[in-house]
Amino acid sequence: MSSQERSADTEAAVQSTQEDRMQGADDRFNSKLREAFGSSPFILTKFDQFMNWVRGSSMFMLQFGIACCSIEMMATYAIKHDLDRFGAGIPRASPRQADVIIVPGTIVSKFAPRMKRVYDQMPEPKFVVSMGSCTISGGPFQKGYNVVKGAEEVIPCDIHVPGCPPRPEALIYGVAKLQERIANGESSPVTVKPYELKQFGDLEQDELVDHLAQDIDEETLVMRYNWADSP
């Protein structure tokens, strides 16, 4: 994924999304209070530390299964590995009540818009653990015609756990690392490639869009994949 390989456009887009995410400190930790005070007075610093500890100590996971890795993810919740020891073992079915989404598997073109929506439905602050090779780069299926080359093409990821699939121990390590980072107030330099949900009418006009114009309503949300630009 070296940046030289990307076209100039893509790189600019990546930088702009990076900047959007990285205004000042990570937005997810920013509070209205801090805006009001302007600087970091003692009481707010202590409060920040406390909040970081809180967020790093306890998290609800989204009950979210995609592919092979979700089997290992279930094993991580279950008896032998018991992720709940780390205060991270309550799977919530509704994204509204979840803090962390573990993305366990290959993301394909049909699923990426749905995953984006599920991620959008989660309340801030939210964190993403991408589990397995497929969510890093597409893994063994990278050359497939239908496979999105990594979760970061769609949503920002905080921790990558490599493996195919990662062992439960590796996932626990990933979650523990995430908790450590949150507790220390660190944030990841997040890069999101702009596969965004857009209204069909807002897409740039080209041959494909003209061709689809009869089938798709102007206001329908769509995601456009430029496979040629993929790493």
Binding site: F50, M51, W53, V54, R55, S57, S58, M59, D82, D84, R85, F86, G87, G89, D99
Partner: peptide, 19 residues
């Protein structure tokens, strides 16, 4: 189940509630 945060994981109560 919870055993890392505080004795017997009891501090999870604070963490969960505040979070």
């Amino acid at each position: 189940a919870v055993n890392r945060v505080g004795p017997f994981g009891l501090l999870i109560i604070v963490a969960d509630a505040v979070r």
